[in-house]
C-alpha cells in the first residue's frame, strides 16, 4: 500500500487544463487544417488530384477544393503539387456540423462546428452519454477516443461519458466505414438509443469510407444510415481534435475561438 501511495506522489497530477488553459503541444510534423490557394494552378494540371488516395480534391478553374471528410491527411497532394496549392497547417480544429462544411477551398475555410440547438443543449450540455460503436475501421480512432478517458484528458470532467448500453446513451459515437457486416448491429444500437439522440462520426471512415471508399463491403460512412450531427475528420483525428469537436457541440468552446496556445 505504501508503494502505491509513493507511486501516486511520484506520478503527480496530470490532467491538462484545456480548454481553460492552453492545449497540449502538438508535434512539429502534425498535419492539421489545410490551406488551399489555387491562384498559381496551371491549366490542366492534375498532379494533386491524381496523387490523392481517396479522391478528396475537386479541381476547377481557380476553385480547387479539398473534402476533409475524405482526406487522410497523408499530404501526398502537397508533395505532388509543384505550386504549393495545398499546404497542411498545424490547426487541430477541424470538426463541423454539416457535411458540406468539410469541403474547403480558397475562400471557404472550415466552418467549425457550432453548438447544439437550444433544446438539445439544455438536455445534453452538462451531461452527454455516448455509446461508441466501431464498424469497419482500423481501431485507431477507437484508440484515440479511449485516450480521452485517461487521466491526462479526463473527458468526464465535461460531463461526457462513454457508456456500455445504448439505452443509457444520448447518442452514438461512430467509427469505421460501416461494414455491411455491422449494418444491422449498428441500426439496432441506434434504435435502442432513446430520442432525442445525436450521432457523431469520428474519422475519415465514418464520414466517407476513408481508405475503403467505394468498396462493396462498406457503406461509405455513417451518413448512409443516419443523420449526423457532428463530423470529426482525420485518419485518425488527434484526441485534441475530437475533444475540440465535442466541446464545440456542447457550446463549451465558442465558434472560431481557440484557447491560447502554449507556445504563444
Amino acid at each position: 500500500m505504501f508503494k502505491a501511495l509513493f507511486a501516486r506522489f511520484q506520478q503527480g497530477h496530470r490532467t491538462m487544463t484545456f480548454p481553460d488553459g492552453p492545449p497540449p503541444e502538438m508535434p512539429d510534423h502534425f498535419r492539421g487544417a489545410p490551406r488551399i490557394d489555387p491562384s498559381r494552378c496551371p491549366d490542366e494540371c492534375r498532379e494533386c488530384a491524381d496523387a490523392c488516395p481517396t479522391d478528396a480534391l475537386r479541381l476547377g478553374a481557380q476553385s480547387t477544393s479539398l473534402d476533409l471528410g475524405r482526406c487522410l491527411f497523408c499530404t501526398e497532394c502537397q508533395t505532388a503539387c509543384p505550386q504549393g496549392t495545398v499546404t497542411f497547417g498545424s490547426d487541430y480544429r477541424l470538426a463541423t456540423r454539416d457535411r458540406s462544411d468539410l469541403i474547403v477551398g480558397k475562400d471557404d475555410p472550415i466552418k467549425l462546428a457550432g453548438k447544439l440547438e437550444a433544446k438539445l443543449l439544455k438536455l445534453f450540455g452538462r451531461s452527454l452519454k455516448l455509446r461508441q460503436v466501431s464498424a469497419g475501421g482500423c481501431n485507431a480512432c477507437e484508440a484515440d477516443i479511449n485516450v480521452l478517458q485517461t487521466i491526462g484528458w479526463d473527458l468526464s470532467r465535461f460531463g461526457i461519458q462513454i457508456v456500455a448500453s445504448p439505452r443509457h446513451a444520448d447518442g452514438l459515437l461512430i467509427t469505421g466505414a460501416i461494414s455491411r457486416n455491422m449494418e444491422l448491429a449498428l441500426k439496432k444500437a441506434y434504435d435502442a438509443v432513446p430520442a432525442p439522440k445525436i450521432v457523431i462520426a469520428v474519422g475519415a471512415c465514418a464520414i466517407s469510407g476513408g481508405p475503403y471508399i467505394g468498396h462493396p463491403e462498406v457503406l461509405n460512412g455513417a451518413g448512409a444510415l443516419f443523420p449526423v450531427d457532428l463530423y470529426i475528420p482525420g485518419c485518425p483525428p488527434h484526441p485534441l481534435t475530437i475533444l475540440d469537436g465535442l466541446l464545440r457541440l456542447l457550446g463549451r468552446i465558442e465558434e472560431g475561438s481557440r484557447p491560447s496556445s502554449s507556445s504563444g
Binding site: D50, A51, C52, P53, T54, E76, S134, A135, G136, G137, G176, A177, S179, N181, M182, A185, P211, Y212, H215, P216, E217, V218
Partner: peptide, 17 residues
C-alpha cells in the same frame, strides 16, 4: 464484422491507395 475487403482491393496493385 470488421471485414472491409482489403485483400481483394490489393489485387492489381500497387497503386496510390
Amino acid at each position: 464484422y470488421q471485414h472491409r475487403g482489403v485483400e481483394r482491393a490489393l489485387l492489381g496493385g500497387p497503386n496510390k491507395r
